[in-house]
Simulated assay, not measured.
Amino acid sequence: MHVLRNARVYAPDDLGCQDILIGGGVILAIAPDIQTPKNLPITETDCRQAIVCPGFVDTLTHITGGGGEGGFATRTPEMQVSDAVKGGVTTVTGALGTDAVCRTHQELVAKVKALRDEGLSAYFYTGNYHYPVKTLTGSVQQDIMLIDECIGIGEIAIADHRGSQMSWRELARVAADARVGGLCSGKAGIVSVHVGDGDDRLSTLFDVAEHSNIPLSQFYPTHINRSPALLNDAVRFAALGGSFDLTASSTPEILASGELKCAQAFKLALEQGVSDEQITFSTDGHASLPHFNSDGVLESLKVGSMTSLLDEVRDAVLIEQLPLSQVLKAVTANPARILKLDSKGRIAENADADLLVLNPDDLTLQSVMAGGQWFMQDGNLTKVGTFE
């Protein structure tokens, strides 16, 4: 058992100075000056008015690595536990991307189970960029219903030369399978949609909404900060009831080509009337970050970083001057709600004890707790992966 004392709690709403009692991997109580029995072995930590917030929920991480757009030598490395911890990420959602030949669902599920054994919370999407959809059981519905860790499908690609150029009918059928699988298993059944830089942007999703009975809330498009035009489409998407995701990882080359920084896009979307309940950030960690020229030729390639999430949270608060409680929603409560992970993304009684301690002056990461275990204390890693 643990007690965190004198914490400035952002749940993500600002609850002021509180103590937090933790036991069995969950939050047992939140109150000023919690009194504990003297005959129980309870570890106490004085937070000294540091900020304590929920661990970040990353809705898109290529936990087994990604890439390959530049050939086999450009396949990116898989995620390690410390990669997540250094970025304040305590919950990850793994996905396949461009490559579903050398990157497999069997490998993805094994990595999810390994991360869980090592103390993080981990889930995955079935499928990848392409259609027809590759799955483990032969069915999107069966994957979602019968595999505990599977919570949806993705990243399925639209508006991208690397995708399968799906029609709205094909995407609607995929979404219907995911929706029914989610309904029958109590899961989100979400459709994570990779949006490329094609001029069609979100038109396929709008066509689904116009011509089918699938609500836009079933879709969860990501990489929305790819361009101002795409962000404008996303504002319309949100007005019709959808939520969307901004990508924290980027490169100078990609930003120079017109991509918006995640923090900047967040502020612009809010200014255009999007609710702060409808926007999330994700890392795209360990994905390849390719830059293609106008002819579709690869010019550069770098790797997505899981520390990018905390970087963009910090920039949104310190540079864009947005309230911390509002920014934290985008990496805690909002993604947890969209993925239907009810015990994640909040500091409340019976919620999982996934907590970050941040320096109140510059929001640097001091400590990380996942499932009631310390993975970082006072800036030092105290628990890492098996082979780190």
Rank of each mutant, 00 (worst) to 15 (best):
F375W: 05
D148Y: 10
V140G: 04
P54N: 12
V235K: 13
H211N: 15
G154S: 08
H194L: 04
I347R: 10
T247S: 02
S275E: 13
S249L: 06
D199W: 04
L301Y: 00
K134W: 00
M306W: 01
V92Y: 04
Y10C: 12
I42M: 03
M1V: 07
V112M: 12
L183Q: 15
E253N: 11
P252Q: 02
Q49H: 15
V89L: 03
L270R: 02
V133P: 08
Q80I: 01
A348L: 09
D197A: 14
A29P: 00
G16Q: 11
T91E: 06
L15F: 15
D200Q: 14
D14W: 13
A73V: 12
T76R: 03
R314D: 03
D199G: 09
V92R: 04
L318S: 14
N380G: 00
Y129S: 10
R162Y: 08
R337I: 01
E210Q: 13
G68T: 01
T364V: 07
V331M: 06
G182V: 05
V357W: 08
R201G: 08
N334R: 03
E259M: 14
L231K: 06
D46W: 04
G372I: 12
I254W: 09
D33T: 08
S288W: 01
K111I: 09
S308F: 00
F387I: 09
L341H: 04
L205S: 05
S294Y: 06
N350L: 12
G70A: 07
L205E: 05
A239I: 08
N6L: 07
I51S: 09
G87T: 07
G127F: 10
V303A: 00
H286C: 01
T98V: 14
V313W: 00
L231H: 07
R5S: 08
S192T: 04
L363M: 10
R103Q: 12
V191S: 10
L339A: 05
G97V: 04
C262Q: 04
H291R: 06
A11T: 03
G16D: 08
A336R: 04
F72M: 14
N6K: 15
I27G: 04
A234D: 13
